[in-house]
Structure formats: structure tokens, C-alpha cells
Amino acid sequence: MPKIAIIDDDPDILEAIKILLINNGYTPVTANNPDDAINLVKSEQPDLIILDIMMVEADDGFYLANKFRKLGIKAPIILLTSISKVTGFEYGTSETVPADVFLEKPVESKILLEKIAELLQ
């Protein structure tokens, strides 16, 4: 069963995605702040990471994604965002933001599961 790390400071989002993943045969592990997230990813070595961009600071997600890559963690990263293009940020993968997929909240379960399956292949 692929292990998926969910990192978000919203407990409800965390809970909802967790149940969605369990129901679809994945093993979720969760963290709700950047510090716990680093420890979690280091110790659990997940196959995929779902990461919220805005947590305590507006760019925690970007910071964490970079940190994971620096730590040599190669698991694909899905970045979740509430603001995305709305503020003119045309998010895309780049050297500065090493994410594989950007999804805007609220994410449809179908789309999230599709992307997870794609990235885990």
C-alpha cells in the first residue's frame, strides 16, 4: 500500500483527505506544521507528498518542497493552494518550486485520486 504524507494546517482538510486516501487503499500519514512535516517525511519516507502552500507563513509549502528536495527526498509532490492564479500567480513547476502538480482548493476527490495514481505510476 503506497504511503502518502498529507501536510496541511487545516485539521478538517487533513481529516477529509486522510479518509479519502484510506478508502482508496493508501496509507496516509499527516502533519499540521512545517517542523512536524520535516520529521514526518524523514522518518516515514512516503511515496508521495500532498502539501498545502499557505500554512503559518504564506510560502511554507514552497519552503518545505525545497527542503525535501535538499534532503534528497524524491517522492512526487502535489501542492495545494487556495489562491493560485487568482492573484496572478501562474503556478508552474520550476527549479525554485520543485512540485509535480498544483491543485486549487477545494479539490475534487476524483481529480486528486487521478493525480495521485498518475504520479505513483
Binding site: 478538517d12 482538510i13 479518509i19 504564506a58 489562491i83 477545494p106 479539490v107 476527490s109
Partner: peptide, 27 residues
Amino acid sequence: IMSFVHDLKTPLSAVITYINMMLEGAY
């Protein structure tokens, strides 16, 4: 503006995600 939108959208997103799960029979 960014933090305003984030704070306004986050609770709505959480509720929608729950409703989606309920409608999909996750519970």
C-alpha cells in the same frame, strides 16, 4: 488580499471536501 482570500476560502474548502466525501459514500 492573499491572506484574506486564503482565510475566506479555507473553511469553505474544508466543508466542500467533507460533503464530497459524504456524497461519494466515504462515511
